[in-house]
Amino acid sequence: MNRQDNTIETLRTNAPGELVKHREYELDLAMPLLRQAVEASGVVLTHEFSPAAHYEEKVIQQVRPQTQTAIHREHQEGVTDMFLHRANEAVDAAFDGGEGNPLFDYDQKAA
């Protein structure tokens, strides 16, 4: 469709999908006009406002506590691992010194 003829009146007699296309087109037209008017009002829009950045910040805010929880959990797991490691060492040490100890002398018991 020729965008010059892309008026609401024309589109109302066309397919509904064209209404959506027109609406998007209208929004595309509206933003530069608004920007021009805002700058004419004396506002210097040096920093382009980024909705993406806005969302990014929101996501960061949501994710941050989750990350902290995950780090905390990992730390806890790390501590658990450390305890398990120590326990293993203790068990290993017990085995190492277990010769002659009936508790560890399975072969002897089995026999």
């Binding site: 929004l27 509206a30 933003m31 805002v38 506002v43 829009l45 909705p51």
Partner: peptide
């Protein structure tokens, strides 16, 4: 409108356009 209000309107319009396109169309 004051420059402050104009700036807020522009920011709101940008966010609006982004969300309408992404979420409705």
């Amino acid at each position: 409108v004051t420059p402050e209000e104009a700036k807020k309107l522009y920011e709101a319009a940008q966010l609006y356009t982004q969300r309408v396109k992404n979420e409705l169309y």
